[in-house]
Amino acid sequence: MRIPFTLNGRQVLVESGPDRRLLHLLREEFGLLGAKEGCLQGYCGFCLVILNDELVPSCMVPVFSVFQGRVVTIEGFRETSDFRDIEHAFLAEEVAPCPSCGPAKVLTTHMLLKRFPNPTEKQIRRALSRVSCRCTDVTTLVAGVKAAGANRRLRSHVR
């Protein structure tokens, strides 16, 4: 079936069986390797993407579900200044640049800051609990997210 949707801000049209996982469509048809295959059950969080402004595990989304929807992956998000707030903060706080969970943690942080520009530690821990990798200790992660929030608030005041 033909599935039109918006991918990282661009209109695309794919021909695919409806039973294919969005994760595999993104990786194999579009070469977008940021979302990783983990548990294939929606638990580990490695495959998170933004679909219609919600963070979802792309392994649990059949492609027909994105019909006329809006998908944003880490590759698309990387083009934005919102990404740089998080990138600089994570570097400064030494959050491990883990290839497995890094993209998911960045997108999770972005969606958290959209909702809570100055999140509490509890809110940060709750949000990041959806990504199960343990490459970085929680204290460092919390510091990284708080720093990202500070960067973003500073940028919006300066603008």
Binding site: G42, Y43, G45, L48, E54, L55, V56, P57, M60, V61, R126, A127, S129, R130
Partner: peptide, 9 residues
């Protein structure tokens, strides 16, 4: 109900 990722769906 389920982990956060599943709750988004």
């Amino acid at each position: 109900i389920a982990p956060q990722g599943i709750r988004s769906l």
